[in-house]
Amino acid sequence: MTSAENKPSGRIDVRYVAHLARMHLADDEIARLQPQLEQIVGYVRQLNELNVEGIEPTAHAIPVQNVFRADEVRECLDHDAAMKNAPLAREGQFIVPKIIE
């Protein structure tokens, strides 16, 4: 795996990016996505035409701040409800393949 950083701009290492996003894509999927993504990236690169120096980025659509919640207990999901959707469970826990540390 190489870092995305080392790639020349415009060309996307789809396999690497899909790996970052934890999607095992088949070769034909990658082959199909490659030109589409590059076309889209090519399109969005038109933003480079603009001078954005000194412009504040917008992360939120509304100018609001300091929205907090009081430190008060609310009802939890009951355990059975919490486990009901679990594809695999054991002893009240969600099961995943063995984690190697």
Binding site: S3, I12, V17, A18, L20, L37
Partner: peptide, 10 residues
């Protein structure tokens, strides 16, 4: 993939 790419390092 597009969203992961535009956030990735570099």
């Amino acid at each position: 993939i597009l969203g992961t790419y535009v956030l990735s390092s570099g």
